[in-house]
């Protein structure tokens, strides 16, 4: 309750600012079309208006303010336009139609999830190897850490094109990018987690003469859960970005990334914004699902209340 009111106020302020900002952003076009429709505008000359600042123009034409919120291709669409577009492209379209955001969202989501599963699985395996083999630890770990500082995303277009040239298309190339992006955070987090029990806890198991695998299942793995989930939340978000960027090159026509790209080709700002919101909703939902599993798991393990 303590946070709901402040958050609501902040969100309301953002929405209000958005509507306000849309006025100067769209006012030039609004005034021009109003003049074409025969309305009184100041100043009369189009050339003069072009040289004017947007805020000054908006201040002198209050009658056109509402017009700036209803354009078909505004520079900045306002929230209700985006929401209407989202509604039109989800609820009012058949989910299998190419017009439907549900369809495009599904394309992106499936690549994200497949890639995330692959990346996480491999990441956990490598982390287990690193923790149990000194040679592997010393050889691979520095590279795993260093790779986090590198803009890996830059290779996304290349992976798509190379795989395309050997005949692999569709979901797999994007999933590979997603897997690659979620792989390293999981490795680093999981290694940290598997090493998180302190010396006393390892000594305790030593006094029981526990084997390596018993130590792993009874101590290392449970202790790594909080670290694993923290990396999974980073990883799933990274996977989604990977899938979206994987849709950008080669003029892909399916997926949320493709919606962003075609929207920007044709100046369909409302389409861009609605695709953007769809990615945001998808990201939030994915992170929320992981967080929910995290809460439930940690609660069952007695690590959280």
């Amino acid at each position: 309750m303590r946070t709901i009111l402040p958050v609501a106020v902040v969100v309301a302020a953002i929405v209000a600012f958005w509507y306000l900002a849309a006025i100067p952003m769209n006012i030039h076009f609004a005034v021009t079309s109003a003049q074409r429709a025969g309305a009184e505008v100041t100043p009369e000359s189009g050339a003069e208006r072009r040289n004017m600042g947007a805020i000054a123009l908006a201040a002198r034409n209050p009658a056109q303010w509402t017009d700036s919120w209803t354009q078909a291709k505004p520079r900045l669409p306002v929230p209700h336009q985006v929401v209407a577009e989202l509604w039109r492209t989800t609820a009012l379209q058949h989910p299998a139609s190419k017009q439907s955001l549900v369809y495009h969202g599904w394309v992106t989501l499936s690549a994200t999830v497949v890639g995330f599963a692959i990346g996480t699985g491999l990441g956990i395996l490598l982390a287990i190897g690193i923790v149990h083999s000194r040679a592997m630890d010393m050889s691979v770990m520095p590279w795993a850490i260093a790779s986090q500082t590198i803009p890996i995303l830059a290779i996304a277009p290349m992976i798509i094109v190379v795989l395309n040239s050997i005949g692999v298309q569709g979901l797999i190339p994007k999933a590979i990018i997603s897997a690659y992006l979620s792989f390293f955070p999981v490795v680093v987090g999981m290694v940290k987690g598997l090493r998180s029990p302190d010396a006393m806890q390892f000594d305790l198991l030593k006094t029981y003469n526990a084997s390596r695998s018993e130590t792993f299942w009874k101590l290392r793995l449970p202790a790594s859960a909080p670290y694993l989930f923290a990396s999974l939340k980073v990883g799933i978000a990274a996977s989604l970005v990977g899938a979206i960027v994987g849709e950008l090159p080669t003029g892909a026509s399916r997926g949320l990334g493709a919606r962003l790209l075609t929207g920007s080709y044709y100046g369909q700002t409302v389409q861009i914004w609605s695709a953007l919101f769809a990615t945001a909703i998808l990201a939030a939902a994915l992170v929320a699902i992981v967080a929910g599993i995290e809460r439930a798991t940690l609660k069952r393990m007695g690590l959280a209340t």
Partner: peptide, 18 residues
């Protein structure tokens, strides 16, 4: 702070590159 922090963490998790 109470209002902006949750909003900020939420936005930080979004694919802003879009």
């Amino acid at each position: 702070r109470r209002g902006l922090l949750p909003v900020g963490s939420f936005v930080a998790a979004l694919p802003i590159v879009g």
